[in-house]
Design a protein around this nucleic acid. Structure first.
Lengths: 222, 222
DNA sequence: CGTTCAATTGAGGAGAGTCAATGAAGGTGG
DNA sequence: CCACCTTCATTGACTCTCCTCAATTGAACG
């Protein structure tokens, strides 16, 4: 059918119950509502929550990464966001989750079982607005940029989230990147190769990208 | 350059000051913070606010429609959302607008100059979360659906916002639709024509679509 | 009735997708 | 420790959708 491809995905078999819960440490400064909470450990590809599930908590990544995604009935998948350490996700509207959330690799996630209230609404709102801006900016990338521009934007975004280190770690697979950028795994791979041959990046290994010519990458996504 | 096309756009010349302000009527139930506010009238393509501007208000569409968009340096445009009567927009993060907002046609917009506070945070948060879900769902459409599926999804969305009337009014141009769906104006037009020849819709005029076979349209976007 | 701008339609090409084969990496068990 | 297997990534050949360029039609307005 052509139709923007995307690897077919069945939602991962539920692992719920496998996760071990740990006693809570003090929450990081970025998000610390006044409530009891705990850290859950997830293994790679384990589901955090499913689309349609009742939503009754917010989540903050402690370590590792999480992908939020949605599926079409034929298995096409769109990852709407990755979340890394410190970031908050799990917002819902009308009391239900509209997306799936899975750990990309092994991950620790702090769970806040208490919804937005008088005491924490400002933090919740700020986090939600940040997510909104990110989603809308991603729309521009997916809707109007070509493959090279998308990959460049992705690399720069990942770099920024890792304190602008030249060595960028990619916690996710090529398939994940493709499903995030609205491309196929092959196109992502070819684009990486082209960047490499142009001397824009070096690939230490599949999951490690050294950004050689940051300026050139920035110029690409205008 | 190919690159997902999109008609080149310069932000419309600022019309600020042209708008006439009217005394406020009671706000509709959907959003009514306890504060003084007023209704501003905008003519077609008039700017409501610009990217980068300091944000100090929320807006609710009274009549007409508004487009939110972002530009690439070469003029490619991505409309991230349309807003019609009753809907709230103008959220910001870090105190600045990250998008342009323009009236699609003549529009009336209620302006709430007071930011989120203890009294209205719930409404603000709900509106923001609704926008977030919409944006993320739109990512799936743009990232993973083909032209026909995108247009079908768009028509159904517009229909739903107009109380599911079979006669759907499109306040925006083909160019706007293209820039919203990540397509060119030609592809949008061709897709409409194909729908028409298949008997899925009838086009009373350019801006009026009669949905004949809703089921078929729904089946398209799975 | 001419002007103007938006929308439609056509012809052709380019970018990304599909299908398929090869290569590299990691885990398991003999 | 190595052979085997599985999974992921890369690369190539070919196809197809949608974009580009261009001409035509249609609608609105003075």
């Amino acid at each position: 059918m052509f139709a923007q491809a995307a690897t077919a995905h069945a939602p991962t078999a539920p692992f719920r119950g496998h996760q071990r819960l740990a006693e809570a440490r003090p929450a990081p400064a970025s998000f610390s509502p006044d409530q009891p909470h705990q850290i859950a450990f997830f293994e790679a590809n384990e589901e955090v929550y499913a689309q349609g599930e009742r939503a009754n908590a917010l989540y903050q990544v402690e370590f590792g990464a999480v992908r939020l995604y949605r599926l079409l009935s034929d298995g096409r998948r769109q990852i709407s966001a990755f979340h890394v350490a410190g970031e908050v996700f799990g917002f819902e509207a009308d009391g239900h989750h509209h997306f799936f959330a899975e750990a990309v690799g092994p991950a620790g996630i702090r769970v806040f079982r208490q919804p937005a209230n008088e005491g924490n609404w400002r933090q919740t709102l700020d986090a939600a607005l940040g997510a909104l801006v990110r989603a809308q900016e991603h729309l521009l990338v997916i809707g109007r940029q070509n493959a090279a521009e998308r990959v460049a934007a992705f690399l720069l975004d990942m770099m920024e989230r890792q304190d602008n280190a030249r060595e960028v770690q990619l916690p996710m697979s090529r398939t994940d990147i493709g499903d995030y950028l609205g491309l196929t795994i092959e196109t992502v791979s070819r684009t990486f190769s082209k960047f490499k041959s142009k001397g824009l990046v070096r690939l230490a290994n599949t999951r490690t990208v050294e950004v050689v010519d940051e300026a050139a990458l920035r110029a690409m996504c205008a």
